[in-house]
Simulated assay, not measured.
Amino acid sequence: MADIVALRKSEAAGPLVSALDNGVLRLTLDSPPANALSVEMMGALQEALDAARDDPAVRVVVIAATGKVFCAGHDLKELTDRRADEDRGKAFFKLTMNVCSRLMQSIVRLPQPVIAEVDGVATAAGCQLVASCDLAIASSEATFATPGVNIGLFCSTPMVALSRNISRKHAMEMLLTGETIEATTAREFGLVNRVVPPEYLNQIVTKYAQTIASKSPLTLKIGKEAFYEQAEMSLSSAYAHTASVMVENMLARDAEEGIGAFIEKRKPEWTGE
């Protein structure tokens, strides 16, 4: 698998293309027509995220795709071919699910915000990928589904991300029927933030990304981490935890600089400390 060593240049890493511009790292799934989450694709994504984690030049990550399919989920042909193994593919199936679970959790735990730019079909683990991102902006032509139930394979792991983004009734509707929903319905469900004309998708995502990239990287890290931590807590525990987080945040140099700049009516200069 290709080693990602220079994120500052546009480069291909197997099925993934990465490019860093003005603090925004764009990771493009580039294995049409399905852009499936094969083991190779997930490995390339994981490697890119691991490299980005400690790179101060990366402020925001955008996950996009080439072609008419954002991501069709796991590579069913790859999985089916392993049924010829002695264990009927069990070890490979387990590997695939473990790699996928680690990848989705890495997106949530990445210090930098992650935005999904969805222009096309996002199904099964592809829908899971969208749901795992912090923000998702879709073109009006995008569609979403968790159709595993139609082929005898319930979308159990996509369900984890899906049920943490949308209401239980909407999640169960998608999971039990396997039906495709349009982008506007995905927005109503809470799966995506905005639906825009396809010709403006990249422009709008870039604007979102650059706006976020202009903030203190330390503040973004603190806020994102606290958001997901408090979401799993009781109300009183959440308030206790976030109060402690805010105290520590207030002591950060960037908070001192930001508040000072606001009072003095000037642009803050972030140091990430």
Rank of each mutant, 00 (worst) to 15 (best):
V205P: 04
L76G: 03
K169N: 06
A116I: 14
R102K: 05
P197L: 09
V130N: 03
L95P: 00
T180S: 03
V196Q: 10
Q112S: 03
V196I: 15
G178F: 13
G148L: 06
M104N: 09
C127D: 02
A125V: 05
P197C: 04
C133P: 01
H74A: 11
Q203L: 15
L110R: 00
A122D: 08
F92L: 05
E188C: 00
A183W: 08
T146F: 13
T96F: 10
L79W: 15
V205Y: 03
L201R: 10
T180D: 00
A136Q: 03
V192G: 01
L201G: 06
A91M: 07
A125R: 07
I137F: 04
M104W: 15
E78N: 12
E78R: 12
L191A: 01
E141P: 00
E182K: 10
A91Y: 11
T143G: 02
C100I: 02
N150S: 09
M104P: 00
L95Y: 10
V118E: 02
A138F: 12
E117S: 14
F144S: 02
L76E: 14
L176D: 02
L95I: 04
P111C: 03
A125D: 05
A186V: 10
S139W: 02
P198Q: 15
G152V: 08
V196P: 04
V160N: 11
V205F: 05
Q203V: 15
A186Y: 13
D87A: 07
L176K: 06
D119Y: 01
K77C: 01
V114W: 03
S132F: 11
A124L: 05
Q128G: 06
N193A: 07
A136S: 08
A145G: 01
H74N: 03
Q112E: 10
A124Q: 10
P198L: 13
E188K: 13
M104S: 02
P158R: 09
A125L: 14
S167A: 13
R88E: 08
L175I: 11
E141Y: 06
A131L: 08
L95M: 13
I151M: 12
I204N: 03
C71G: 03
Q105T: 14
